[in-house]
Structures are given as C-alpha cells and as structure tokens.
Computed example of a mutant assay.
Amino acid sequence: MIIRHFTWETAVPDLTLAEVEALAADAHSGQLDRIGEPYLGHLRAVAAGLAPFGVGLQMAGLLHDVLEDTGLGADDLLRAGVPFGVVATVRRVTRAPGVAYQAMLQQITTDHSATLLKIADNAHNSVPARAARLSAPDRERLLARYRAAREVLWPVVAPADVRAIVGIVNPSLLVELEAFTRLGG
C-alpha cells in the first residue's frame, strides 16, 4: 500500500490517477465482487464512466468503496496524497453504519459529484451480463433496489450527464433513461 508521510511543512503532492488506481488495487487486494470477479474490475468500470467529468471523479470512482470495504480510513487516503475533494466525495458515498440505503441516497443527491459517482456505481451493478450471474432471488432483489435508486439519482442531474455515464458503463440503461426523460423524470 502506498502511504506517504504528511507533515504541514512538507505537503505531499497529490497522487496521479495511476497511483490512485494502485492504491485502490492494494486496498481491495484479494477481494471479489458479488459475481466472483476481482473487485478492481468494478472500480475501473465505475471510474471509466466518470471520465467525461475529470480525473478527480475518476479517482473517487476508483476509491468509492475503500472506506466501507477495507481497513483504510479517510485520514489514510489524505496521508497517501489523495486530493481532499476526492476524499470528500468518497466519504459522501460511503454508507454510515445504521443509515438506511434510501436515506443514504437522499444525502448523496445533495452533492453533484457524489450523485454522478453513485450513478456510475449503480450502472455497473446493473449490467445485465453481471446480474445474470447472480442467483435468481439476489438478482431480483438487487435489480429492484438499483431501479429504485435510479428514480432518486437520475432526476437531480442533467439527462446528458446520466447519458454520458450509462453510455460508457451500461448502454442497456439508455432505453430506461429515454423512457424516464419522456415521462418528465
């Protein structure tokens, strides 16, 4: 793991995107996603969907689950040289213990960057080929959860932003997005 020592006298320069990816890979080393694939693939897909919005959001995409699913905390990320704004976005999408999923989504929608990140995460979690590898009960439960989340997330950003993300991460959602925007969503 890359941990740089920080002192106020010798501020660490911000990490590059490649260095953040290496940090995420190290933090999630050995972890598999719900379908048994190395977790880094999910992180890369989310980050790729955020590329139109800049390197900072790509970094947040790579790190979006690190606070929930690894031993690293926000202070560790800052000490490693992750930009403060990136860490702030990661913190916003991190579900706090005891907070219901719907309540977390409502909190996320108060921040544009966090909303875009969660849209990218949702889009990758909803990829049909990935969902098909889940058990039927898990697939139905999760797809319903992700569909309900999109009803909260999509209305708070421009349809062009949602289109940019899902066009990269999960083009199958473009049909749903078109229907959603026609209905005034």
Rank of each mutant, 00 (worst) to 15 (best):
I3D: 10
F6E: 13
T7A: 01
T7E: 11
T7W: 03
T7L: 00
E9C: 09
E9K: 11
T10H: 13
V12W: 08
D14Y: 08
L15K: 01
T16D: 07
T16N: 03
L17I: 01
A18M: 07
A18Q: 14
E19C: 05
E21R: 14
L23W: 07
H28T: 09
H28G: 03
G30K: 11
Q31G: 07
E37M: 14
H42V: 00
L43D: 00
R44C: 11
V46I: 15
G49E: 03
G54D: 09
V55P: 06
L57Q: 02
A60R: 01
A60K: 06
L63S: 06
H64A: 02
H64V: 04
D65E: 10
L67D: 01
E68Y: 12
E68I: 09
D69T: 08
T70W: 04
T70E: 02
G71I: 07
G71D: 13
D76K: 01
D76P: 04
L77Q: 08
L77K: 05
L78T: 14
L78D: 10
L78R: 14
R79T: 11
A80Y: 08
A80F: 10
V82M: 06
G85I: 06
V86C: 07
A88S: 12
R91H: 09
V93R: 05
T94A: 14
P97I: 04
G98R: 13
V99M: 11
V99Q: 07
A100I: 07
Q102P: 10
A103D: 15
Q106G: 14
Q106W: 13
Q107I: 10
I108A: 09
T109M: 08
T109L: 08
T109H: 04
T109I: 15
H112L: 12
S113P: 06
T115Q: 00
T115K: 04
L116C: 02
K118W: 05
K118F: 07
A120W: 00
H124F: 12
N125H: 12
S126I: 00
P128S: 03
P128Q: 01
R130Q: 07
A131L: 15
A132C: 03
A132K: 01
D138A: 15
R139W: 00
L142Y: 10
A144V: 02
R145Q: 14
A148K: 01
R150S: 15
R150L: 11
V152N: 00
P155I: 10
V157G: 03
A158H: 13
P159N: 06
A160C: 06
D161F: 05
R163D: 12
R163F: 02
I165A: 01
V166L: 04
V166H: 08
G167Y: 01
G167F: 04
I168K: 06
N170A: 10
S172L: 06
L173G: 02
L173E: 14
L173N: 01
L177M: 00
E178Q: 14
A179T: 13
T181G: 04
T181S: 11
L183R: 12
G184W: 03
